[in-house]
Amino acid sequence: MSFFRFVKVFNVSEEQSILLFEETKKWLWLCYKAVDSGIKTPVFIDDSILIIDEMWHNFILFTKDYERYCLDKFGLFLHHLPTTKSESEEWGKDIEKNTKSYLDSLENQYSIIFDLLGKETLLLWYKDFAVKYSKDKIKELIR
């Protein structure tokens, strides 16, 4: 399965890789739920949960498994939609306005995660993962 590749690439234990894979599947469910229930503010990956995004990228590499998982669990293919260069540049034009918007979106995301996945998941992602798998630490892990 895809988590075995993750062990090799990111130099984490198999146990940790399996945990991250399970958390990524929860993230995918959350993405689906946001689309399915019409949540106005879509969920997004920020620096705190980059490790989930890395596992998602890893899962996507196993295209047949990823497609089957999405279709079996959600009835549709969940596309990964990273921020484009033009979106990033546009965001940077009005940093003050966009920072407030970002913080509002993040607060909304915390609320969605808390309500749908629980306090434990929220703390795991935004407290534990934010420290253990910061941007710098992810770079150190890659072999």
Rank of each mutant, 00 (worst) to 15 (best):
Y69K: 05
S2M: 10
L103S: 13
D65T: 02
E89M: 15
L123T: 08
E14Q: 13
I18M: 09
T41A: 10
I142L: 15
F6G: 02
I51Q: 00
I95Q: 09
H79S: 12
S17C: 11
S134N: 03
I95G: 07
E15G: 11
L71R: 06
T83E: 08
D47F: 14
S111R: 13
I45L: 10
Y102N: 05
V35K: 12
S105V: 05
S17Y: 08
F59T: 02
D104K: 10
I51V: 15
E140V: 04
I138Y: 10
M55C: 05
K8W: 10
D136I: 03
F74Q: 01
L28S: 04
C31V: 10
Y66N: 00
P82F: 09
L122H: 01
I95P: 06
C31A: 09
K97I: 04
I45S: 00
H80E: 01
V43H: 02
S13Q: 07
N58S: 12
D47H: 15
L61W: 11
G38K: 01
K139L: 12
S134Y: 04
K64H: 13
Y32A: 02
T121A: 06
N58P: 08
I52K: 07
S2K: 09
T63Q: 11
F62W: 03
D94Y: 11
Y126D: 01
V43W: 00
F6K: 11
Q109C: 07
S86K: 15
I39N: 04
T63L: 08
I113W: 04
G92V: 06
F129A: 02
F62C: 01
R5I: 07
A34W: 02
L103W: 10
V9T: 15
Q16I: 13
G75C: 04
E87Q: 13
E23G: 00
F6N: 04
F6D: 04
M55K: 11
E140P: 04
G38S: 04
Y126C: 04
S134A: 02
E90D: 09
Y66F: 07
K97N: 02
K135H: 07
K8D: 13
F129M: 02
F4D: 11
Y110T: 05
H79C: 06
T99C: 09
D136A: 06
I95M: 08
E23N: 06
P42H: 08
V131N: 13
K100S: 04
W56A: 06
T99R: 10
E96H: 01
D115W: 02
Y32G: 00
V9P: 09
G75P: 06
W91M: 01
G92N: 15
S48G: 11
R5S: 09
L106A: 13
L123Q: 14
E14V: 14
D47P: 14
S111P: 03
S105M: 10
W56H: 15
E107A: 15
I60P: 00
S2W: 13
D104E: 14
C70N: 03
N108S: 14
E22Q: 03
K33I: 04
D94T: 07
M55D: 00
I142G: 08
V12H: 06
D128C: 11
E120R: 14
Y133V: 02
L50Y: 10
K132R: 15
E22A: 02
L103G: 08
L103T: 14
G92L: 13
K119L: 01
L122A: 06
L19M: 09
G92Q: 13
K73Q: 14
Y126W: 08
L103Q: 12
S13D: 07
S48R: 14
N98T: 03
E140Q: 12
G92E: 15
L28M: 12
V7E: 06
